[in-house]
Design a protein around this nucleic acid. Structure first.
Length: 568
RNA sequence: CGGGGCGUAGCGCAGUUGGUAGCGCGUCGGCUUUGGGAGCCGAAAGUCCCCGGUUCGAAUCCGGGCGCCCCGACCA
């Protein structure tokens, strides 16, 4: 491709709206353009990168026997009502109505559609196992799209689904995917660590996320250098030393605490208590009403753990008015002592705690000498607290580390959830019908492209790994109107094309500096400069983007040399 | 959903007290230049986000709306 005719709108300045490195560079390099909040057009250079990535994905999916589909993005509401997700999912789903006032949504994912196909077409265990996948746009009305293509409202996803007769089959499909994902991310040049994850609203027994460490990430990964334990913060546990207190025999005592609203206030307050000796009382609104969640004053609540503990899918902190109506006081003076009309969940760390201080459910008053076992009724014990950096690994006791990361892939063991709801069953060898055992497996394709940039860039621009570079080589003659350079360029263009090497010819009437800057920015792995310096000796310069090394090679050795370098 | 910011030429931005819009880069033409975003001359290019109001007059003041970004919350 000749650059003079290529649509590669590079920008000299950083776009003001771009914050994340990948967003900035993909915009500047002319790979993507924004159409709206969280909506991006993929330009030709970006499309070539995506083609490289999806090719790798297709190869690896083929290796595990997966078959590619292409399903509709527009889904009738009925299907989602069958699975229960039409109501279970809130504002995140794009919904629309057709001319006949029938409800539709734009697919956020494709469990329903694939399961419906399985239900309609699969009859016998002999037809299983199946792994089906597609690469398709997904739509999610994110409350806050950000980072360009890192988190969009429309994005490209590779999603696959496995269908098995039994759970052993599911385990195999799950492991196959884990292996395939490892190879996919590795081939794309990103390090994506598998971590234990919460299955969230997906349901299912087990799920693993593939997380790439990057400053632009939105999740935290907890990891242990000792034993290799790694988990999403929303799932992570740590070993906390929680010796039961020697019981404090004193009866609870109410005392005035005017102006005290926070844990910190009470620490400072004369006659107050250190954070670790306080019980933090949080009130949440669950689907079926309010509930109290107790933690030690110095611990933070993890909402995902809260949801798992309470078996809830929609939760929010209760509003002050709701809290006052239920407990008779505002946040700042809340406690669980004497509360019997609301469910009470407490973090394990409070087990055996005695001599604690907590709110008295009367504004401006607290209680001291609280013994959890003695004074708080019907406690449901769960792990509710958020792990902090430096705490001990629950497996090996080495200190845990916390790192920002972005989720590139997520694999779920769905089990029977969708097949039961939608009635996808097969006849087994015993002649009985049983629901198909399913798994679901996603990769954010355009997010993966951004993650590659996050991992491979420098001050000059992107440094694409060879496997996903939009072009392998750029030929940049400093002066096109010099006949020696023009001849050499033309010859290289011919030879490289014949050799099947993906080459960009920078035939623009630009100064060398402009060409070099652009080549660096868009991150082409190899740059060949047929300039006067080298041509004199019948050579050209070969510049390697990643190492920054320049060497001279004979003009008639270019194709061979590149073939060699590209083969790795 | 809370907090902050922004909307003026393709991009980055300025615009004073309200007087009919400018700078840099880019684009187009010409000359010079030619190995890391060249120089000079000339030119094209703007519904100043939208609607309404105040005013003789609004990019500027007032009201309403829309859009976009960032932080937090949220998030399959």
């Amino acid at each position: 491709m000749r650059l003079s005719q290529a649509f590669v709108p590079t920008l000299r300045d950083d776009p003001a709206d771009a914050e994340a490195v990948s967003h900035r560079l993909l915009l500047r390099g002319g790979f993507v353009r924004q159409l709206g909040a969280g909506i991006y057009s993929i330009l030709p250079l970006g499309q070539r990168v995506l083609d490289k990535i999806t090719r790798i994905i297709r190869e690896e999916m083929a290796r595990i026997g997966a078959q590619e589909f292409h399903l509709p993005a527009l889904h009738p509401a009925e299907l989602w009502k069958e699975s229960g997700r039409w109501d279970a999912i809130g504002d995140e789903m794009f919904r629309l109505t057709d001319r006949k006032q029938a409800d539709y949504c734009l697919g956020m994912t494709h469990e329903e559609v694939f399961t419906a196909i399985a239900r309609d077409e699969l009859r016998s265990y002999r037809q299983l196992p199946q792994i089906w996948y597609q690469i398709q746009a997904k739509f999610r009305d994110e409350p806050r799209p950000k980072g360009g293509v890192l988190r969009g409202r429309q994005f490209i996803m590779k999603d696959s689904y496995s269908f098995d007769v039994d759970f052993a089959g599911l385990d195999r499909a799950f492991d196959l995917h884990a292996e395939a994902y490892k190879r996919i991310f590795e081939r794309c040049g990103v390090e994506a660590v598998p971590v234990e994850a919460s299955s969230g609203a997906m349901g299912g027994s087990e799920s693993v996320e593939f997380m790439a460490h990057t400053a632009a990430g939105e999740d935290w990964v907890v990891s242990c250098s000792g034993c290799g334990y790694a988990a999403n913060l929303e799932k992570a546990t740590s070993r906390t030393t929680t010796e039961p207190d020697t019981p404090d025999p004193a009866p609870t005592e109410k005392f005035p605490t005017p102006g005290v609203r926070t844990i910190e206030d009470l620490v400072e307050f004369e006659g107050g208590a250190p954070a670790a000796r306080q019980i933090k009382t949080l009130v949440y609104q669950l689907e079926d009403g309010l509930a109290l969640f107790l933690l030690r004053g110095d611990d933070a609540l993890n909402e995902v753990k809260l949801m798992e503990a309470a078996g809830a899918t929609q939760v929010r902190p209760a509003h002050p008015e709701e809290i006052r109506a239920a407990l008779g006081a505002l946040p700042g003076s809340l406690g669980a002592v004497g509360v019997r009309h609301l469910p009470i969940y407490a973090d394990l760390r409070l087990r055996g705690a005695s001599g604690m201080t907590t709110g008295a459910n009367e504004d401006g008053f607290h209680l001291r000498h609280v013994d959890v076992a003695r004074d708080i009724a019907d406690v449901r014990w769960h792990d509710l607290r958020e792990v902090r950096s430096g705490e001990s690994c629950s497996r090996c006791e080495k200190p845990l580390e916390l790192e920002k990361a972005i989720e590139l892939g997520h694999i779920f063991k769905l089990g029977l959830r969708y097949s039961e709801k939608l009635g996808a069953r097969v006849l087994g060898p015993d002649g009985k019908q049983s629901p198909i055992v399913m798994g679901s497996y996603g990769i954010g394709v355009d997010r993966l492209m951004a993650a590659v940039v996050e991992a491979h860039h420098d001050a000059q621009g992107i440094v694409w790994p060879l496997a996903v570079a939009p072009y392998q080589v750029v030929v940049a003659p400093p002066r096109m109107n010099d006949s020696a350079q023009a001849d050499a360029t033309e010859r290289l263009e011919r030879e490289l094309a014949a050799a099947g090497i993906e080459t960009l010819i920078d035939d623009r009437n630009e100064r060398a500096g402009v060409k070099f800057k652009d080549a660096d920015l868009i991150g082409i792995p190899f740059r060949i400069v047929p300039g006067p310096r080298a041509l004199g000796n019948g050579c050209v310069e070969l510049f390697e983007r990643e190492s920054g090394e320049t060497s001279q090679i004979a003009l008639d050795r270019v194709v061979d040399t590149l073939r060699q370098r590209l083969a790795v």
